[in-house]
Design a protein around this nucleic acid. Sequence first.
DNA 1: TAGATTGTTAATCGATTAACAATC
DNA 2: TAGATTGTTAATCGATTAACAATC
Lengths: 214, 214
Amino acid sequence: MKKFRPIDRMSASLPTIRRLPAYLQVVRQAEADGVVVISGTTIAQELELEPIQVRKDLAVTGIIGKPRVGYVVKDLITALEHFLRWDVTHTAVVIGAGHLGTALLGHTEFRKNGLNVIAAFDTDVAKVGKRFHGIEVFSTDELSSYLTTHGVTLVILTIPAHVAQEICTKVIEAGVKAIWNFTSIKLKVPEGQTGVLIQKEDLSSGYAVLSVRA
Amino acid sequence: MKKFRPIDRMSASLPTIRRLPAYLQVVRQAEADGVVVISGTTIAQELELEPIQVRKDLAVTGIIGKPRVGYVVKDLITALEHFLRWDVTHTAVVIGAGHLGTALLGHTEFRKNGLNVIAAFDTDVAKVGKRFHGIEVFSTDELSSYLTTHGVTLVILTIPAHVAQEICTKVIEAGVKAIWNFTSIKLKVPEGQTGVLIQKEDLSSGYAVLSVRA
DNA sequence: TAGATTGTTAATCGATTAACAATC
DNA sequence: TAGATTGTTAATCGATTAACAATC
């Protein structure tokens, strides 16, 4: 019997993609608890979502469930990790070894999701040469050459807003294709550059929801 | 001439609320640059959004624009900050003085948005009594009494997932009404408790978008 | 068999976008 | 005046939810 269906990552909506990690978290926990099969209904309950939404979302991963039973936990984890591309290693560097940057260097959860941070960069000479959580800090002067020689295509930006666009342009010129932007400004891909994706991580928007709705 | 219209925070959609901080960021920058009036079109360009979306969003803040000209920068900042309730101080504590927790303690940007972190809590006796960025770390044993005596209604959770629900329940019993949840699990409000809002801040969902779409 | 769940197709809901009159 | 922009009302689009046959 078939376990998986072909997947089409482009057809998945953004809201769906954003919910998948929560499903994976729940299903991994279930696996750790020794659960063998799990229904969409159970996952929905855990996350306070509608069962139909969970089923629709899981469908994009290509998983095939069993009516009356649910999904095989092991297969569902495989399907989710594969769809998210978390079953392969993504090599990244952190640019900006400030509070947030060093915190992210110590964030062990990333490793579980295929994200491997191999270096950090900072302009502060006092930080260069130091290691945070085992990851060495290099001078920003070496950034471009490092990215090129190591073939890094993903960078995590935790630098001050006023230098963010400059660094963004620089790393794109060095071949970076994905930028995880933790700065407070919206970064723009320079004209003529294609295939670059910038994801803004916005702490203030979550705080806005709390503060307006509370 | 009227500058503002009455506002209704409950009528604003979640996507709109989440975009407002980005507008505020742009308009504050414009003010710093000496700009006196700014059009929705200009803001839209800066954030790569549609002008109509910016106008619709700004309307919820009660700001009244001038056709042909745009919005008075000073008034727009006032309207955005007031709508977001960022013009008053929100007292909060950080629970969990690990990597992320201490990074947030040093996050000066919060202060600009009315968020005032007055204490941190941790179970690690080695951390208790220490100060991070001027904020003292207390023992988790003192958490409930501290929250009650200081009337804290907002907490920031940066603790391990396996203790998160327990602490969540505890702080709600101590009168907390808003929880900014940085843990990887979905927290639930205990039955019978009302008026509690939990906002999950999910790093992995942003990473999922990058990794699927890149 | 009875009943719970999957997965598809259709309906609904809400957010985004378009159109356009009003305005300075 | 001409033209750009606001703000309202209407249309469109896409995501969520509902309905239900298929399945074990």
